[in-house]
């Protein structure tokens, strides 16, 4: 699901469950290659103890600045409002599953 600045605090920082956020932009090829993988993960982890969101940094630059993002795609995994894990660049589905399974 796509998130914006308004919803970010509530959905991510104040969330009880771990939250995975994929930061992307429409001009970024690898980001777009990652999107179908993220969508696959959303399906695979539906109802599980993790929430999965996407943030378009072109539309929400303040969030990218706040978390010092300098390269996209970047995936941040939040736990209790804090960044627990940062993954930069195109990831494989398996690598992401491994990271998620360790956390939940």
């Amino acid at each position: 699901m796509e998130l914006n600045e308004k919803k970010f605090n509530k959905e991510v920082l104040e969330c009880e469950k771990p939250v995975l956020v994929d930061f992307w932009a429409p001009w970024c090829g690898p980001c777009k290659m990652l999107l179908p993988i993220i969508e696959d993960l959303e399906k695979d982890y539906k109802g599980k103890d993790i929430k999965i969101f996407k943030v378009n940094i072109d539309e929400n630059p303040q969030i990218a600045t706040k978390f010092h993002i300098m390269s996209i795609p970047t995936i941040l995994i939040f736990e209790k409002g804090k960044v627990k894990k940062q993954l930069v660049g195109l990831q494989t589905k398996e690598a992401l599953k491994k990271v998620i399974d360790k956390i939940i």
């Binding site: 932009a25 001009w27 970024c28 090829g29 690898p30 980001c31 990218a64 010092h68 993002i69 300098m70 390269s71 996209i72 795609p73 970047t74 940062q86 930069v88 660049g89």
Partner: peptide, 17 residues
């Protein structure tokens, strides 16, 4: 420094610089 200034994709990351 990947994600902290090192990049492999100029078109992706140019706006950050």
């Amino acid at each position: 420094y990947i994600g902290k200034g090192v990049s492999y994709c100029a078109t992706c990351d140019a706006p950050f610089f």
